[in-house]
Amino acid sequence: MNRIWLFLPLVLAVTLGVVLYWGLGEDPSELDSALVGRQVPSFDLPMLHDSKVSAGPAIFKGKVQLLNVWGTWCAACRVEHPQLNRLSEQGVPIVGLNYKDERGAALDWLEERGDPYSRVIYDPEGSLGFDLGVYGAPETYLIDAEGIVRHRHVGVVDQDVWESDFEPLYERYRKDG
């Protein structure tokens, strides 16, 4: 009888252990976006600053941009805001999506904390948010010059997240484009 087979259960147990241990380190609340690799869904929504001007997915064409989903009701957005201001100062273009919010409160917020956004889409019903699969603010998307979603982060983008998750992709797609 082939004795090597006796080690099979051990090998299986170790493999299973490694796989499970690796799974422990994963954050289960961070889901893969179904949109990565696909176009930004179509929409037709007014801008926050001027309700007479509306915007569609065309605003994501032409350069690599971030899309940041926020609302004044969102406590974590408060934490994230200074980082967005910093990124904007460094020249990173950020489109805001004001999600399920009130215009007045949102405008006051930007007045008070600074406005890092090149433009802000106003989505009080959360319709674009729904199509993007937003399930909690803040969420940040990296969108390439073709309007294709390349990365999604749920939660605060702090300096660490920016440097590890966004910046390399941002630089890469900027070079490609």
């Binding site: 889901l31 893969d32 179904a34 399930y135």
Partner: peptide, 8 residues
């Protein structure tokens, strides 16, 4: 739903 929120 899956298209928006993923197979999750």
């Amino acid at each position: 739903m899956v298209e928006r929120f993923g197979s999750f």
